[in-house]
Design a protein around this nucleic acid. Structure first.
Length: 285
DNA sequence: CACCATGTTCCTTG
DNA sequence: CCAAGGAACATGGT
């Protein structure tokens, strides 16, 4: 259920639960989510170890641990499209798609993932491919412009490129472009300096607002926050009116633009949906 | 059965 | 090597 803000909120939640918890055992129920790490290696590394803290980088979760021998360890997590991570009492029946279960004693840390696109692994090579954090000072308008300068790809597709800026996903790409008043179809190299700056600021604003929103509503036990609707659940029955206004274009095809009342358009770019207002979001400046 | 879904990686083509 | 486009991964909802 993850994009950048959802991962950030989950990391904060896990950081209140995991530090000092000791790992009694590991149960790998779906090998695929370990990536290049073998189940044996994961078990050998983590068993007897202790959680120190959790950080986030782009949409990855970084679990800092101390091994049984006291050596620092980095465990990398990713929620893919449908992943969840949460603590659950030890005697609770496992969910159907529990991919990895870490036994912490009274409770278990559950990594559940319906589609198994997520990861829990010791292989940290994906971190090396990431561009700047959107909220970091390193993500300047100048550096952003540099990344867009030579690309003929549509800006929406470019926003999903994690080497350009790390953490923007399909929902917030549409949201940021709406806020910036820029057409998703505009070739990246055609953005002028003012548009680059506006888009950078819109990305930061959209993500910051989502995290702030997520921090003000209670999380469910499983960290999904369905009632508060920080996470995207499509046409979830519980989606609140608040949520409806939180996302201004995503999944609002044919409904009136909140700014000009024109119907929101849905198009496909790189086989993924993009939502935008053809009147408010322009191809020029 | 068809199509769509919050993400990343791998392969092919130029 | 790079850029760009597309398929693959796997399951469930509508």
């Amino acid at each position: 259920m993850p994009e950048w803000p959802e991962v950030e909120v989950l990391v904060r939640q896990l950081n209140r639960l995991l530090p000092d918890r000791k790992i009694k055992g590991i149960h790998v129920r779906r090998r695929r989510v370990l990536g290049k790490t073998s189940p044996r290696k994961l078990d050998a590394s983590l068993r007897g170890g202790t959680f120190v803290g959790v950080r986030r980088r782009a949409k990855f979760l970084l679990f800092d641990l101390l091994s049984r021998a006291g050596e620092p360890l980095l465990l990398l997590g990713h929620l893919g499209m449908t992943g969840r991570m949460y603590l659950s009492p030890r005697d609770t029946p496992l969910p159907k798609h529990a991919a990895v279960v870490i036994d912490l004693g009274r409770e278990s840390f559950i990594f559940e993932d319906t589609r198994y696109f997520g990861k829990l692994t010791l292989d940290i090579t994906p971190l090396g491919r990431l561009g700047p954090e959107p909220l970091d000072d390193l993500f300047t308008a100048r550096c952003f412009a540099e990344q867009l300068r030579n690309s003929s790809q549509a800006i929406k597709i470019k926003l999903l490129d994690q080497t350009v800026v790390a953490g923007v996903g399909n929902i917030y790409a549409s949201e940021a472009l709406f806020r910036a008043g820029i057409s998703p179809l505009l070739p990246a190299r055609r953005l002028n300096g003012e548009q680059v700056s506006r888009l950078r600021n819109a990305i930061r604003k959209v993500l910051r607002e989502a995290v702030q929103f997520g921090s003000t509503v209670p999380l469910s036990y499983d960290g999904t926050n369905r009632e508060g609707a920080l996470f995207y659940f499509g046409s979830a029955p519980n989606a609140s009116d608040f949520y409806e206004e939180r996302l201004r274009v995503y999944d609002r095809e044919a409904r009136p633009c909140l700014r000009c009342r024109n119907p929101i358009q849905r198009i496909f770019q790189a086989a993924r949906s993009t939502y935008y207002c053809a009147r408010c979001q322009t191809l020029n400046s």
